[in-house]
């Protein structure tokens, strides 16, 4: 298999596309962080009545994530933007080929 050589620098448009993909990958991590936050401030020992504020926080975070997902999905689905054969993907594929078994 011909080893793929990723270019060191890419064009600005392509660079932005990659960062948008990074954003799409990052979003669930941010979401998980936000959704797990209540564990930190609402331990079972506390006697504060914080159900309503917690709920408001969760719904606000939820809405924010949906908005972010909308923005990233829209920017990734812009015409001509997402192609599956991207140098980065191919680099990943090459990574798989190098590190997976050689069947």
């Amino acid at each position: 298999m011909a080893r793929f050589r990723a270019p060191l620098f890419v064009q600005p448009a392509h660079y932005r596309l990659r960062r948008r993909r990074d954003a799409a990958r990052l979003l669930p991590v941010v979401g998980a962080f936000l959704f797990l936050l209540p564990i930190l401030w609402a331990p079972a020992q506390s006697f504060r009545r914080d159900t309503a504020p917690d709920g408001i926080f969760l719904f606000v975070a939820w809405g924010g994530l949906i908005a972010l997902a909308l923005i990233t999905a829209r920017s990734l689905s812009a015409p001509g933007a997402p192609t599956d054969r991207d140098p980065e993907d191919e680099a990943e594929a090459a990574f798989d080929a190098d590190h997976g078994d050689n069947s």
């Binding site: 979401g31 959704f35 939820w62 997902a69």
Partner: peptide, 15 residues
């Protein structure tokens, strides 16, 4: 809410 937060994470992490 957990029952709906989990799927939300999966879907916003669709990539």
């Amino acid at each position: 809410l957990t029952i709906y937060l989990g799927p939300t994470l999966v879907f916003i992490g669709w990539w």
